[in-house]
Amino acid sequence: MKPSILIKRILFIVVVIGIWQAVYMSGYFPEIQFPSPIRVFNSLIEGFADGTLIKALIASFKHLLIGLTLAITFGTLLGVLFGKSRQADETAGMYLIAMQSIPSIVWVPLAIMLIGLNETAVIFVVVLGGTFVMALNVRTAVHSVPPQFIKAARTMGSKGLDLFFKVEVPASLPYFMTGIRLAWAFSWRALMAGELLSNGPGLGYSLRYAMDFAVMEQVIGIIIIVGVVGSIVDQMIFSKLEKKVMKRWGLIK
């Protein structure tokens, strides 16, 4: 990143915090509703120091890791099925989009009633959050394999499973990576929705707990963590991987 961009970004956040501090100092809102930036910062430090936030983060990542792994697995299987079989796609392909358009929080009551108020219910919601977007992208990935790759491979004697694994799978990797990035993003949102209504542990649960005890600085602090963790994971892992693949595949310069 160019230093000038970094400076602009830092300047922006300084201005935002400045406005926040100014509104706080105006005394327009009661302090219990509108804590100062310093207080939020201190509450974050405290939360990390006494380990409660770290425990919550670890619990959330555990739910996410299990849920996302399952979502990617199921999504890939479904996507390959719908991408390869026209029968399957004509029969149920449309419902994939319908399922994808259901916001994950809608699954929470169903999960709790079906499974109970526990971590498995949270993971269930995460799986539902990621599976359909993964399946849709894998279906696109299968359809978007350039026909000339298949033709060229066939003239070199490749067919059947060999053709599938050596040509179609690697050729569809860019869309597959997009699928994984989106599955992660949707799962992360689903995770927060699920945890918010669960009875812990997890970041979402800590957020709800803070609300119940009217600790506004913790509420804001956890929202900041959710945003920061989300963007770091996206930027450091998934976007980077996706761009790398896209570049190698000649899809971007």
Partner: peptide, 16 residues
């Protein structure tokens, strides 16, 4: 089959 090699208008090299 491999007894006939083909070159297309597009190189169709595998990018990976």
């Amino acid at each position: 089959d491999t007894d006939r090699g083909m070159v297309f208008q597009q190189p169709a090299l595998f990018p990976w």
